[in-house]
Simulated assay, not measured.
Amino acid sequence: METIKRLFGIVWIALAVATAYYCIDIFGGKLSSGKQDDLVFGIIIFFILLPLVCLGLATFGYYALTNEYKEE
């Protein structure tokens, strides 16, 4: 079971990196489109949602890798 937890730790960290990449790639055009609606949406995604999602996934993966969830 501990091996599965460590494997999923790697998966969560990879998912955090992939999420960051795709959000920047997809929503990067929203900041430079010139429309005010796109600008507000892009700012919300970049500065509020993206850090929350990526840091949450990365933290969960780190804890899984370092065996913080070990049952004693």
Results as ranks from 00 to 15, higher is better:
residue 37 D to S: 14
residue 10 I to W: 10
residue 40 V to R: 11
residue 56 G to Y: 12
residue 36 Q to P: 00
residue 2 E to T: 06
residue 72 E to H: 11
residue 12 W to V: 00
residue 22 Y to Q: 05
residue 39 L to K: 10
residue 66 T to K: 14
residue 60 F to S: 02
residue 48 I to M: 07
residue 8 F to K: 10
residue 52 L to I: 15
residue 23 C to G: 09
residue 28 G to C: 08
residue 65 L to Q: 04
residue 31 L to N: 06
residue 33 S to H: 03
residue 57 L to T: 02
residue 32 S to L: 03
residue 56 G to R: 09
residue 42 G to M: 02
residue 20 A to L: 08
residue 67 N to Y: 09
residue 66 T to Q: 04
residue 2 E to H: 03
residue 36 Q to S: 14
residue 6 R to G: 10
residue 59 T to C: 02
residue 8 F to D: 05
residue 53 V to G: 01
residue 30 K to M: 15
residue 59 T to V: 11
residue 22 Y to T: 06
residue 67 N to H: 12
residue 11 V to S: 07
residue 52 L to R: 01
residue 56 G to M: 09
residue 51 P to D: 06
residue 35 K to Q: 13
residue 46 F to R: 04
residue 14 A to W: 01
residue 4 I to Y: 11
residue 53 V to K: 02
residue 41 F to Q: 11
residue 38 D to K: 01
residue 41 F to G: 03
residue 53 V to D: 01
residue 30 K to L: 14
residue 39 L to H: 05
residue 71 E to A: 13
residue 18 A to F: 04
residue 58 A to D: 02
residue 46 F to T: 05
residue 40 V to P: 00
residue 52 L to E: 03
residue 1 M to K: 11
residue 11 V to N: 03
residue 30 K to G: 00
residue 30 K to W: 15
residue 58 A to S: 09
residue 63 Y to I: 01
residue 52 L to G: 10
residue 19 T to C: 10
residue 29 G to A: 08
residue 40 V to K: 12
residue 64 A to S: 14
residue 19 T to R: 00
residue 34 G to I: 04
residue 4 I to N: 06
residue 37 D to G: 05
residue 67 N to D: 15
residue 51 P to E: 07
residue 60 F to Y: 13
residue 42 G to A: 15
residue 59 T to R: 05
residue 26 I to L: 14
residue 29 G to H: 09
residue 22 Y to H: 03
residue 68 E to N: 10
residue 46 F to L: 08
residue 57 L to A: 08
residue 4 I to W: 13
residue 8 F to M: 15
residue 49 L to D: 06
residue 9 G to A: 08
